[in-house]
Amino acid sequence: AIMDCQGALDLLAGRTGGSVHLGAVSTAKYFVPHAIAAFSKRYPKIEIKLTIGNREEIREAMHGYDLDFAVMGRPPADVTVDVRQLGRNPHIIVARKGHWLEKDSGLNLTDLVHETFLTREPGSGTRTLMEGMFQRSDLEPIIGMEMSSNETIKQAVIAGLGIAFISAHTVAHELTEGRLIVLDVAGLPIVRQWYVIRRSDKVLLPPAQAMFDFLGSEGSNYLPDVPELGGR
């Protein structure tokens, strides 16, 4: 047992390697790499593998034991998990600079029923959240194009193809640059949480445990600042 303990300490001290396999929903890819970089500085010998997918894909991956843990919004309902809160994830509606509703304040969802929404594919957490928001108001959004990446949605909104309901963390950069604007809509932002999630029955080796703890305690430091929403 003493050897085991020493081996574990060596792993933690970064004297020996080890590997960690984490998953992240695609919306989280705007901050997860920054957190990984900070962790790697501390533990340079630990090899890290990152798998990105939509909510549905990461939920599926959690069913196997490949992933040590995942960064996502709502924890999956069908697996028993341990959860660490990582920080707030505000969702907003963005439009291109110069959009005709740019100067309007106090808009309602009803004011947006004639707008075209560019949206993620079904199975994405952002898409599910948007659908729930409209359903609660008994409204039906006009869906323009479905896209599997937030990057493409941003470019399409900037090009004037429509507006989008999106995590503020994915557009922090474009808001700062003034290429996108936040529409002032009642009830928004909808604030969800980011979580680090692992299967309760998955035993984490020291490197994975160290990273799980790191994300749980320091992960929020790597969330992008959103100018319109007053920081993190």
Rank of each mutant, 00 (worst) to 15 (best):
M147K: 11
L112Y: 06
F134G: 01
H99T: 06
L161N: 13
R84M: 13
G125P: 00
I142F: 01
A95G: 14
L101T: 05
V94Q: 14
E102I: 05
Q135P: 01
N89R: 10
L86D: 00
I92D: 09
G160M: 06
L129S: 14
I92F: 15
T152C: 01
L86I: 09
L112W: 05
Q85E: 15
V157Q: 10
G106P: 04
M147N: 07
V94F: 15
L118T: 00
I92E: 07
G123Y: 14
H114P: 00
L107R: 05
G98K: 11
L139W: 03
L107V: 03
E102M: 04
I92K: 09
M147H: 10
L109Q: 07
G144W: 04
D104E: 13
E131R: 08
E146S: 09
E140I: 06
R127F: 15
V83S: 00
G98T: 05
Q135V: 10
T119C: 06
E151D: 13
D78R: 08
W100M: 07
R96L: 03
D111P: 01
L109Y: 12
V83R: 13
T80N: 12
M133A: 08
P90V: 08
G106R: 10
T128H: 08
T110H: 12
E151P: 01
D78P: 00
V83A: 00
H114E: 05
L139A: 01
L161W: 14
P90H: 12
L118Y: 03
I92R: 10
L112A: 09
M130K: 02
V83M: 05
Q155W: 11
D78E: 14
T116Q: 10
S137M: 04
I142Q: 12
L112E: 04
N89Q: 11
K154C: 07
G144D: 00
S137A: 09
G125R: 04
G125Y: 10
L107N: 05
F117K: 07
S124D: 09
H114W: 02
L118R: 01
L86A: 12
S149W: 02
T116K: 06
V94W: 14
V94R: 12
G160T: 00
Q135M: 09
R127W: 15
